[in-house]
Structure formats: C-alpha cells, structure tokens
C-alpha cells in the first residue's frame, strides 16, 4: 500500500538522486515498471527484461533482451496475448541467441540478432493466433549486444534513444493517426485528440504473416534507451520524459518517476516502461 500511495501521490517525480554508489559502471543497467494506471481495472501490458554481464578474460560484450507489449482484446485476451508474446520471444531468444553465444566462445555468426529476434516474434505471432485468437498485442523489443541495439517493433508502443539530453524516437507507430500525420492530414496535436487515435493497423496475433519494422542502432557511450507503452507517451509530455530519462541516475527510479508522472496525468491506461543505461 505504501508503494501505491507513493506511486499515486503528486510528489516531485524526480527529486535529485542522493547516492554514494558510483555510476561509472562498465556494464549496462536497467529498470522496469508495469503499472495498471488509475482508470483500468486490469493491466494488459507485459514487460520482460533479461541481462547477461560477464567479467572475465574473454570480456564478452553485455547482452540484454527487453520487451514491452501492450495487449488488446476483452475478457483477459489482452493480457494473455501480451504475456504470451513476451514469454515466447524470451524463450526463443534464449535458445537461439543467448545460449549459442555462451557455447560458441563469444562467436555468434550464423544469424544476426536482428534475424533471430524477428524469428522469435514470428513464433510469438503464431502462438497468439493459435492460443489467444481474440487477442492481439503491440510489441517493442530490443536485443542489445555490446554497443548495438537490434530493435523490432509492431504497433504503437515505442522505443526512444536519449543521448546528450536529447530524445529521438526510434520506432514509428503503426496507427491510423500516425499515417495521417505522415500524410500531413493531421498535426500531432490533432492526432492526440483524435477519436480514432487508438486504431492500429498492425499488431501481433492478427495475421498469419506479420510485417515487422526492424532497425539496428549504434548506442553511444552513456546513451539511454526507453521502451514504453502508450500509457506513458500519450500522457506525459515528451520534454518531461526526456528530462526524467536523461537526469535520473538510477534506471529503476527513472521508471518509477515516469509511472508517477503518467498517473499524475490521470493514468488513463496501463503504464509500462523499461529504461536501459549504457555504460559510460
């Protein structure tokens, strides 16, 4: 209860972090949160994080897998679809990327991580179509290896890169209003108020063949990555998100602060965020 009260209270979201711990770590760090918000009764979002850091003579680069999925469909179909998607992807990536990396002495050249991640998402798409036919989910997944982030994306959850206190959106929403913005038929402000703003044209579990947006991003030292559901980005102004992600030194505290801001803004939807700090 104390946690909830803290979460829902309107205290300054990102008080200066007072800590004696050195942040000059050589490994990537992350925080994650998935909050029901203040209006919905259930949390249809799912969130997954896995990080492997090795310190040895070999000094393999850090590996991380991060997933945000925002499920849709009534009667628990939404949360089933998002949860199943996260688990299937994690399972597939463990088998086809992470374990081979460990056993191949750091060499993993048969497939690229982007290809493996896309295969994992196709497996999740098939699993959702098969087991939760009335549900669907957005999906934003990042596999990180060393300084490279392999991103794959479907729907309107988002990934942002924060570097040098500036934030860049790495994903493009597969939404009707985003298309209308691209065609200059709507301004972003009009889109935010549009009655059809929640209409997606692509999601996991909807069609046999799924079109994926994938990209490879070089992460500069000390860069920060944010994955989040629309319960965060559609409620909290981008400047506030940027400030929190760029300034809060602990990634978990940053996630808590982001969720607080979304709830302070009414918390109309489930709020999910993953914040990843690259070593500086």
């Amino acid at each position: 209860m104390e946690f909830l009260r803290r979460l829902l209270s309107r205290t300054p979201a990102h008080a200066p972090a007072v800590t004696s711990v050195s942040h000059a770590t050589r490994h990537l760090r992350y925080g994650q949160i998935s909050d029901v918000g203040r209006v919905r009764e259930t949390n249809q979002d799912a969130c997954f994080a896995f990080v492997s850091c090795e310190a040895s003579r070999r000094a393999a680069p850090d590996f991380g897998l991060f997933i945000v999925a925002d499920g849709m469909g009534g009667h628990e179909h939404g949360e089933k679809a998002s949860g199943l998607t996260a688990r299937v992807i994690a399972d597939y990536m463990a088998d086809h990327a992470f374990l081979p990396m460990l056993s191949r002495n750091g060499h993993y050249e048969v497939e690229t991580l982007a290809e493996t991640l896309n295969d994992a998402i196709r497996a999740a798409n098939a699993a959702v179509s098969d087991r939760v036919p009335n549900g669907g989910t957005t999906l934003t997944a990042a596999a990180i290896y060393g300084a490279w982030a392999y991103l794959t994306h479907v729907g309107d959850s988002r990934a942002y890169l924060v570097a040098d206190a500036a934030m860049a959106q790495l994903t493009r929403d597969h939404s009707l209003v985003q298309r209308l913005i691209e065609l200059k038929q709507l301004t972003p402000e009009q889109a935010a108020e549009h009655p059809h703003r929640n209409v997606l044209y692509r999601a996991v579990g909807q069609t046999d063949h799924i079109e994926l947006d994938s990209s490879v991003v070089h992460l500069p030292p000390a860069a920060r990555l944010l994955l989040c559901s629309d319960g965060l980005w559609s409620v909290v102004p981008e400047a506030t998100i940027t400030e929190i992600v760029a300034t809060v030194s602990d990634p978990q505290q940053a996630c808590v602060a982001l969720a607080q801001e979304a709830n302070a803004g009414g918390g109309p939807d489930n709020i999910t965020a993953v914040v990843i700090h690259m070593p500086g």
């Binding site: 009707l176 059809h196 929640n198 209409v199 999601a203």
Partner: peptide
C-alpha cells in the same frame, strides 16, 4: 458511437 480501447484494423 465512438470506439473505446485500442482497436486493430482500419
């Protein structure tokens, strides 16, 4: 009436 919740398909 207007739609509620995230919808798939346009």
């Amino acid at each position: 009436e207007g739609q509620k919740g995230t919808m798939i398909g346009t």
